[in-house]
Design a binder for these strands. Structure first.
Lengths: 150, 150
DNA sequence: TTATATAGTTAGAACATCTAATTATTAGAA
DNA sequence: TTCTAATAATTAGATGTTCTAACTATATAA
């Protein structure tokens, strides 16, 4: 039983980096929008979580707060995000995505999604269903786990 | 129909980086073996493809040849890989994994696999099956695609 | 009110990756 | 055959990402 579990894990460990690399390459290929994967993830997270603190963002993307701070600096410098004071706690920061940031995020998402959708179009219905189900299951398993490395 | 495809792609795009980040964090956490994800992938690939050329490795991991060359330098300096002449084509290089490299690779794989297996143990049998099937399908879709970015 | 904890940034170092240029070798065409 | 073009790999230099450690500012609690 355990052997089977490990076999699943082994294959997952093989495939995930390949897909990730493919996504990364695709994002790099379309230079127009020019977002790295972490930048993209930060934008997407803050967009879904308006007013996030830096620490929340760092936790989600799995970077340290200083790294995240710099990354955010870059996005702010490009006008994609804004950093404001938190009304209740002045140590804290409220991060938001600007209109321009949202436009870039959506264009970037759409481009990458189209690319992936095109890949998935070569998969038969049965496997597609399995992929949807697997993605859902994997999300619940991994979603909560991401934390800052110390 | 296309909308559905895109929805699958969108969720894949959300989950894959999360899993990847989790794997990365886990590998970093166990410092003992001290392999980055690309280093790990190079070792694993060369182990499965004894005598690969640099270009083949670069294609697989999705790095440029110069980057791959440097990465390999590091692995060789640590005694994990060896670089030899190709008998037929002297421009080419024959990369191999040393005994020590194999030991490190296996220990690193085992550690990460155990970690992932542990995560997967929280998934019910039905979803586990979907994951296995999905991983298989995704591998065939993405396996051939990885190429050097230019 | 002082000590401690929390949120975030700055500073500096290490590393990874890229592009461009270089060297060596092979394959193909004149 | 000999010259040219293509291929394989590396070197050099620049850029960017991420880390750890130290610092500032604010909040909480003794």
């Amino acid at each position: 039983m355990t052997a089977d579990l490990e076999e699943s894990a082994r294959k997952l460990l093989e495939v995930v980096p390949i897909i990730m690399q493919d996504i990364r390459s695709e994002m790099r290929r379309r230079r127009l929008l020019d977002l790295t994967v972490p930048q993209f993830r930060v934008l997407a997270f803050v967009n879904r979580n308006e007013g996030s603190s830096l620490w929340e963002v760092a936790s989600h993307v799995g970077l340290t707060p200083p790294s995240t701070s710099r990354l955010v600096d870059g996005l702010i410098a490009r006008g994609l995000m804004a950093r404001n004071d938190h009304p209740a706690d002045r140590r804290r920061v409220r991060l938001t995505v600007t209109g321009h940031g949202l436009a870039i995020l959506e264009a970037s998402t759409q481009g990458t999604v189209s690319y992936l959708a095109n890949k998935l179009s070569g998969v038969d219905a049965d496997d597609r269903e399995a992929i949807d189900k697997a993605v859902e299951a994997l999300r619940t398993v991994f979603a909560t786990s991401t934390s800052v490395v110390t």
